[in-house]
Amino acid sequence: MEFRLLGTVSVETLTGPLPLGPAKRRSLLAALLLSANTPVSLGRLTECLWDDEPPSQARGVIQGHVSRLRALLAGADAEAYGVELATLGDAYVLRAPETLLDSQRFEELLMLAREQRGPADAVLMFKEALSLWQGPALSGAFAGPPLRVAAHSLEESRLATVEQLSRAYGALGEHHRAAALLTAETVAHPLRESLAAELMLALFRAGRQSEALDRFHRTRRLLADELGIDPGHELADAYALILRGAPGPTGVCLLYTS
């Protein structure tokens, strides 16, 4: 059994995914998993399932979703995996080994990557961590405010991991690979300055200075047009380093800076 938050909220079993049903039931599951092994109050669950005034029957709706989710887990022999959905007064707790949660495994792999002495081993750990992602975090759920915040936090962690992987590639001298990785992400996040800065440096180190400078100017125009701001220090510093022809070291010491 595996609980997935890094993509569509789901429960994978040996016979396939559980039929969780409506988005609000996935929201309930997501809220419980984000606080796995910790009681989640009825009020907190209400915030996760509705982003405006909840209906008068919100308690009953939540209880119904809990009942159905509990039945689904029982039918999948969840108890054999150490999984239990328990009621504690006006709160619910989903007890489960952390190894069954993809988000927890992601964090564990990041910790392992940062403990590696060499960039080659770090690359393997970072790539394994990123392979757990199957799409935007908490997809398929109705995201009330707390879940939107959680999804954003998970995505920030993923993007930071992409940047760390690019630095590990750089430490190995694999600048073209770093540039390819970062190019894909900057398409999806064109206003993220740290990504653009990392891409500029990777392009320069790969011998593609004109592309690196073009990336700076494109990002500068986007920031001005979309946000009305100038480049921050990270982007400006990368630009200055490239103009000087010395974009800094690519050693292991840079792997885990944020």
Rank of each mutant, 00 (worst) to 15 (best):
A129N: 12
K127G: 12
L109Y: 01
G245H: 04
E84C: 10
L45M: 15
F106S: 02
P97M: 13
L195W: 02
E156M: 11
G173A: 14
R25S: 03
V11N: 04
R167F: 05
Y81W: 14
T15E: 14
S35M: 10
P97N: 12
G7Y: 02
A180V: 14
E185A: 14
T87P: 04
V11M: 06
L132P: 05
L199D: 01
A71V: 03
A76W: 00
L94E: 01
H175S: 09
D121C: 12
E155G: 11
Q63A: 12
S41L: 12
L94H: 01
A246H: 09
A30Y: 01
L5A: 03
P55V: 06
P190W: 02
A23R: 09
R105K: 09
M200D: 01
R44H: 13
T219G: 07
L14R: 15
H217I: 03
L94Q: 02
E185K: 12
M1S: 05
K24A: 11
P39E: 07
L241N: 01
Q104T: 10
E226C: 10
D52C: 03
A212F: 00
L6H: 00
V9Q: 00
S10M: 03
A238E: 04
V66A: 13
Q134Y: 05
A78E: 06
V187T: 13
T8L: 10
Q116D: 15
R244C: 04
A202I: 01
G144T: 04
A180Q: 14
G118D: 15
L255E: 11
R205T: 00
A122Q: 02
P22K: 04
Y256T: 11
L5C: 08
E193R: 07
L110E: 10
Y256S: 13
Y256E: 14
P22W: 06
R68L: 04
K127E: 15
K127W: 12
A168E: 08
H189E: 12
S139I: 05
L69E: 00
Q134W: 05
A91E: 15
E198Q: 11
H176I: 08
A238C: 08
A120H: 14
H65N: 07
L203G: 00
S27G: 09
M200L: 05
G118E: 15
G89A: 10
V93R: 07
G251Y: 05
Q164F: 10
P22Y: 05
R167E: 11
A80Y: 12
A180K: 11
V252A: 13
H176D: 11
G170N: 01
W50R: 07
G140Y: 01
H189S: 09
L72D: 01
P97C: 13
A178M: 10
A184K: 14
A160V: 11
L72G: 02
G207V: 04
D51E: 13
L223S: 05
A206Q: 02
